[in-house]
Amino acid sequence: MSANKRYGMSIDIDKCNGCGACMMACAVENNIPPAPEAANDRRGVTWIRVYKVDNHLAYPERRTAFVPVLCQQCGHDTPCVHVCPQQAVDVDPETGIVGQMPERCLGCRYCMVACPYHARYFNWWDPKWPAGMEKTLNPDVAPRMRGVVEKCNFCHGRWHAAQQKAAAAGQREIDAADYVPACVEACPTGALRFGDLSDSSTEVAQDAQRPESFRLLEKIGTEPKIHYRSRRDWVREIASAPRPEGKDGLRG
């Protein structure tokens, strides 16, 4: 048995141009259906969602940054895990990935209430694809039914495939190059990096140590494994609690 991994991600906000390629790649990889007509930004399903964040100032002082938010894979006191009444959420000790079993989920949405990052999504509608488009579904991921909660699992299908490949080759460890989540692979700017945080030689582990690195709501104490970084002071402030003033004029 190899040493346990602690998979995590580092996100360079100064590189993210908010193009949304990660969101598209994620939806394609994980068989997330297109939104029904009535869906909006509060009822959509986007395992990774790029938020447009600003410095709360008006034109021309306004500055914008794009912040991709996915499941933060909390490593301590994981809020969603211990609230689920029927063990549909768990942390894989081997990878540190917070898993969601949609086939076990009752749809009570308690985990969504528990998650401070709003990284969990409920299937408000039956999943529907335009006629013929179901042919483009990824065979490695089962589509979910209406009425269950789902979220990012660092592309579990890909991890599984990498494991199978390693097993077929008689190796105990997977090759790091074989396991990269779809969003990281798709990011055209190289803002997203993925790897084992417990291995100090990986890029992500080094990114996490940088002085401009931060995590969202670190003080809550859930030890998230997504490390953001920015050289802009105002961007690093998004890590902390909300500030009520100057919230007018937000889009959407």
Partner: peptide, 25 residues
């Protein structure tokens, strides 16, 4: 464009859809 573009538009407001405009307060 792919029907999945709803992820970037209606489902996240990351990109402006063709039927939207933005104005100063």
């Amino acid at each position: 464009e792919s029907p999945l573009m709803s992820k970037l538009e209606r489902e996240s407001n990351l990109r402006m859809t063709a039927n939207r405009v933005a104005l100063s307060p």
